[in-house]
Nucleic acid binder design. Structure first.
Lengths: 199, 199
DNA sequence: AAGTTATACGAACGATCGGTCAGATAGTGT
DNA sequence: ACACTATCTGACCGATCGTTCGTATAACTT
């Protein structure tokens, strides 16, 4: 079951890649074994065997999305210099990630957060944990801005975290809903203004 | 079918009230006839007869949520004086509406917008229309702030609409996810700051 | 080449999905 | 009281859900 052969590893990756696309559009609950099997031209039971349960498939899909997000957003952002450049790089990479539709339905975590907001269970728990990690990361980068003298001493870090996250998520949702790109510019503009003048 | 008798009207209202609660937690797609019937102790076919299709049930649920939202948020907000007081009243009522959990899963429209973002069909169409109406309303109230001299002439109305909407929706989602109220204060603080000093 | 194990399949499971229909039950108008 | 119609039920439809299981096929090991 725990993929020793190359064939199994490949199938698992292909399956999860498809699962993430489905989940960002129709939700992790709209993700179904039958549909996955049909689209991948595999048998339902074959896919099922890789995960053991629907919930495990959902959790594996989240893990896969984390990897992709890390590769496309977190890693490149950390190549920018500490302080304001790194914070802005993170935000811009995040917006690029959503805008480029790396996943068919935009940012996976924004979508799944909204879907599991009000629920309970293992998926909810994972989403909460991810949300906390994300906020802590934003908070750390903001604190580094203060340390580097790119933001004033007295700034309310948690408040700023909330606002940046809000703007990014709204840009993602609004661009999906209206099928227009303009909201990303609104978000980056707002972030720049909020962090103080120069780009 | 078009409710002439008092009994039918009542059943329909009770059904939709329950439907809205279910939909804000598990989504309009997670809303099922069987569950609705079980929770209301009615027959599946009895409920079905009121709406004719699942999609019509979803659309009726949206209409019902609109009524409640209008009653709890829009109407009272318009009792505040034109300009800044009315804009702030609208935002505060919105936040109160979410915080009070008038619907079990917070703000219905924030939830459904996120759910149908990336989809297509009649429900998506209605959500897009509602989103546009909401943005136009916000835009109008902001413009009135300018006219009343409560905001400077050159303000970018659409940009402000985006930011206010973003902050409100994020407060709703974050409060649901973390089960804490503090995010509403973050949103109202941010809005006050963004609109300029005094409350 | 043979043996072993990972991988995938196909048929079937009970449960639930949205939806249909004939008939029982209730409410309204006369 | 009667007829009429709105409302609601219960049995049933085909499709799909997640899941199980026995079996075939591939891929590695030796």
């Amino acid at each position: 079951m725990d993929g020793r052969h190359a064939r199994g590893v490949h199938t698992r990756r292909v399956t999860l890649a498809r699962a993430v696309d489905i989940a960002t559009v129709d939700g992790l609950e709209g993700l179904t074994l039958g549909r996955l099997a049909a689209e991948l031209q595999l048998s339902k039971s074959g896919i099922f065997a890789h995960f053991g349960s629907k919930e495990e498939l959902q959790l594996a899909t989240i893990s896969f999305a984390e990897e992709v997000f890390t590769e496309h957003v977190l890693r490149p952002a950390f190549q920018a210099p500490r302080g304001r450049p790194r914070l802005l790089a993170l935000f811009d990479r995040w917006m690029d990630f959503s805008r480029a539709r790396v996943f068919a339905g935009g940012c996976f975590f924004t979508a799944v957060m909204a879907e599991f907001d009000a629920r309970e269970g293992r998926v909810y728990d994972v989403v909460v944990r991810w949300s906390r990690v994300w906020n802590e990361l934003l908070g750390r980068l903001i604190s580094e801005c203060v340390e580097e003298g790119h933001l004033p001493e007295g700034v309310d870090v948690d408040q700023l975290v909330f606002e940046l996250s809000a703007l990014g998520r709204a840009a993602n949702h609004d661009s999906l809903l209206t099928r227009e790109d303009s909201h990303y510019d609104r978000a980056t503009t707002a972030v720049r203004t909020r962090l103080g003048a120069s780009g």
